[in-house]
Design a protein around this nucleic acid. Structure first.
Length: 555
RNA sequence: GCCGGGGUAGCUCAGCUUGGUUAGAGCGUACGACUCAUAAUCGUAAGGUCGCGGGCUCGAAUCCCGCCUCCGGCACCA
């Protein structure tokens, strides 16, 4: 549990040009959501913040193709992304956008201050310009012949045939219209990342929360020498550079997008708690940025350096939980090769909690890649979530329903088994909580499974269906254990644990319960259960086969 | 090529920092038990030369060297 009483949790910003897929969920949004929900249950003031990343050339071009303004285009994806996340129970306190007026203003402020502090310089650079499209062309919008292997139609920043980076591409063409571009000079602004090498290294070494493997990695980069970043783009769609001499120029996306963590948090806090100083709140909170390993460079170097460059007016992150990528059936997810599963499709066809449970159970707290496997998915759900956890919930509640008319009996004298069960309830709550605090979601889930296995064993040993004398006590403890289990599961499977809560008929919502209360036996004798029915439905082999066929057909 | 991480039961992995009882867990498998529960549950068992080869050591999955193999990174690319 963090020391400060409030936390700001951010998830990496999805680029607003396509749908959210399973890969996004695994590394970032689900772990962040589990963590945030856990803090909330602990009465901790936690805010989960995200936003769509709205700017850049790809969006501008896609919008043009669809005959929309870029603002209209990103508006669509902002809404759509939020809906998709919500369908999985990702509970953002604010899902904003990098194109918000608050962010634009903040980005310009940060630039101005960095410049005043001597961390920005300008320099003329030469780049391709298409006179027909009236655009400067970033590397990947120039195609041509690779000077090494002669392959045609390769991007100017990477030849996919030979894997080399061509300095001077031959026969360059504009990727949009196919006409040859001209070279043009333009003044660009550079952020002196190199100014911060020592400070960054010191920060990394002194912050013991950061994952050691990632840290080593990043320190290597620093040792190899940091290069300054060109933060300018000659583009109409972006945050305008606030200088008269820079008319028509905007910031590079990685200059503005992570500042949106701050501008959005400040907006949320000041809207929600009038009279509160958002900046002070930020600085008094734990700051966590959840990311995938693809953006380590930006979050461990660029982001802290920029905050250092404005005199740490806004504090640096306390933790940057970093996870690996998700593979799909042992192959890399690739949207361009159509090898991915859209989140919306998945949550439409399966219980969203199934995805949450499966992903959480395989998402280790490391940069190791994960694999989404349909067979493993069905096995985990059927054998663990349903047969182990769901079964205990249902057998305990339905036994109470059948034998006691749904009314909880009063416990009698505890025997050794009963005493052990009461101890295990408290131990499970404590140990699971510790693991979630440490971001070990997979281990936390395993601990819950161990708890549920224990409860099945307890019920089996006590045989309340044939031991009339001890049945009252067994049932009393079992129903209370169901309540504890529901609370422990809330961060992982919020929809299902709410269903359990309803069946327990305890009033209110599971999402408002206290984590610590799960270690006590609170359901009292005489309490009447609600309607009891199985929580989970088995995944049939045919459904899995259908999914595999569908995925194969897309490719 | 350079750097980093991995290779442990059929599968997914833990253990390796601080070498030491018969190398662990979950899932799967086999057999048995029970019947409250969504053919769920409970018990028992089988199953591993800990990537390969050397070395240090009384003793190595655990430390050192070499090799094979897989994955990732090598900076404006999300």
């Amino acid at each position: 549990m963090p020391e400060n009483k409030s936390s700001i949790i951010t998830s990496a910003l999805p680029y607003a040009n396509g749908e959210i897929h399973l890969g996004h969920i695994a590394s970032t949004y689900l772990p962040a959501d589990i963590y945030t929900r856990f803090l909330r249950l602990n009465g901790h003031e936690a805010y989960h913040i995200c936003a769509s990343d709205d700017f850049g050339t790809p969006i501008l071009i896609k919008a043009e193709k669809e005959g929309k303004t870029p603002a209209e285009y990103v508006q669509y994806w902002n809404k759509r992304d939020y809906e998709d996340f919500t369908s999985l129970g990702i509970s953002f306190d604010l899902f904003y956008r990098t194109s918000s007026p608050e962010n634009v203003k903040f980005v310009q402020y940060v630039f101005t201050k960095l410049r005043e502090n001597g961390h920005i310089y300008d320099q003329d650079i030469v780049q391709f310009y298409c006179e027909y499209d009236d655009k400067f062309l970033p590397d990947r919008y120039v195609v041509g012949k690779c000077p090494f292997c002669g392959a045609e139609n390769q991007y100017s920043d990477l030849c996919e045939k030979c894997g080399r980076v061509p300095d001077q591409i031959l026969e360059p063409k504009c990727a949009i219209c196919g006409r040859p571009p001209v070279k043009k000079t333009s003044k660009h602004y550079f952020f002196k990342l190199s100014n911060f090498s020592d400070k960054l290294k010191g920060w990394l070494l002194s912050n013991s929360n950061l994952q050691p493997d990632v840290k080593n990695y990043v320190i290597n980069w620093i040792n190899e020498g940091l290069q300054d970043w060109d933060v300018t783009r000659d583009l109409s769609w972006g945050v305008p550079i606030p200088l008269a001499e820079a008319a028509g120029k905007v910031f590079y996306g990685w200059f503005d997008n992570h500042l949106c963590y701050i501008s959005s948090a400040v907006k949320l806090i000041e809207d929600k708690k009038p009279g509160t100083d958002g900046k002070k709140f930020w600085n008094d909170s734990n700051i966590l940025h959840f990311i995938g390993k693809d953006i380590v460079y930006h979050h461990y170097l660029f982001l802290p350096a920029m905050r250092m460059g404005i005199d740490e007016e806004y504090k640096l992150p306390d933790l940057i939980p970093t996870r690996g990528h998700l593979m799909l059936q042992n192959q890399k997810i690739s949207k361009s090769r159509n090898w991915y599963i859209g989140l919306k499709q998945f949550t439409t066809e399966f219980n969203p909690d199934y995805l949450r449970f499966y992903i959480a159970s395989i998402a280790s707290y490391s940069q190791t890649d994960l694999n989404f496997d349909f067979d493993a998915f069905a096995e985990k759900i059927n054998n663990e979530l349903l047969a182990n956890i769901g079964n205990f919930v249902n057998r305990a509640l339905s036994f109470t329903q059948k034998t006691y008319g749904g009314k909880i009996p009063a416990a009698r004298q505890y025997d050794d088994e009963d005493k052990a069960a009461v101890l295990e309830i408290a131990a499970a709550v404590k140990e699971t909580g510790a693991l979630i605090s440490e971001n070990e979601t997979d281990r936390a889930l395993r601990r819950i499974l161990k708890f549920s296995t224990f409860l099945n064993q307890y019920f089996q040993k006590k045989q309340p269906w044939s031991n009339k004398e001890t049945a009252d006590t067994t049932v009393y403890i079992a129903v209370n254990a169901v309540r504890s289990l529901a609370i422990l599961l809330e961060p992982f499977v919020p929809f299902s644990s709410e269903k359990v809560w309803t069946q327990l008929n305890l009033g209110g919502s599971i999402h408002q319960q206290s984590w610590d209360s799960a270690s006590s036996l609170i359901v009292e004798a005489g309490h009447a259960l609600g309607k009891v029915e199985p929580i989970f439905r088995r995944i049939e082999p045919a459904e899995i086969e259908k999914q595999k066929v569908k995925l194969g057909a897309m490719k």
